[in-house]
Every structure is written in structure tokens, then in C-alpha cells.
């Protein structure tokens, strides 16, 4: 049998919607909206991840870890201590 991802996705979505809208008509739309929002929050994270991979943010992690240091506050410099000590 040929694998058809789009048809599978459509069938699963349709079945889920049928199930969710069948009962508890007054409550279900609220849950869908709430979890829709949760999904939107998750989607922003996935979107950020895709964007950062495309931009090559993960190409040189050693350099990324050291990006908060510079000439004036280099790696190895301690930058805080109790006053007057």
C-alpha cells in the first residue's frame, strides 16, 4: 500500500474534530481554544528553532558560548566582588 501522509493527516484531523465536537457542546470549544493557544505557544518555539537552524546559530557553539565575553571583560576575568574587599 502506498504511504500517503497528507491523506493520513486529513483523516486523523477529521476524526479528532468529529470526536471533540460530538459531545459537551458548550465546553469543548473552550478546551479547543485553550489547547489551541497552548499549541500556538509551542509553535512559536518551533518557529524560533527552525529560524535559528536556518541562520546557522548552531554552527559554531563554542564561539556562541563565549559571545558574552570581549576584550575588556575576557574569559578568565572575575567581574564581581563584595565592595571594599
Amino acid at each position: 500500500m502506498k504511504w500517503r501522509p497528507r491523506a493520513c493527516l486529513f483523516a486523523v484531523t477529521a476524526a479528532a474534530l468529529r470526536h471533540l465536537t460530538k459531545k459537551r457542546a458548550s465546553v469543548t470549544p473552550f478546551y479547543i481554544a485553550l489547547w489551541g493557544l497552548a499549541a500556538v505557544l509551542g509553535a512559536t518555539a518551533v518557529g524560533g528553532l527552525v529560524w535559528s537552524i536556518r541562520r546557522g546559530e548552531f554552527d559554531n557553539l563554542r564561539e556562541g558560548a563565549a559571545s558574552i565575553f570581549d576584550e575588556e571583560e575576557p574569559v578568565g576575568a572575575v567581574t564581581d566582588r563584595f565592595p571594599g574587599e
Binding site: V75, V78, T79
Partner: peptide, 9 residues
């Protein structure tokens, strides 16, 4: 933490 001790994460 990295900034104060001068060591990358």
C-alpha cells in the same frame, strides 16, 4: 554565572 566567574557555560 559565566560573566562573574569568567568562564563560558
Amino acid at each position: 554565572i559565566p560573566k562573574v566567574i569568567g568562564r563560558p557555560v
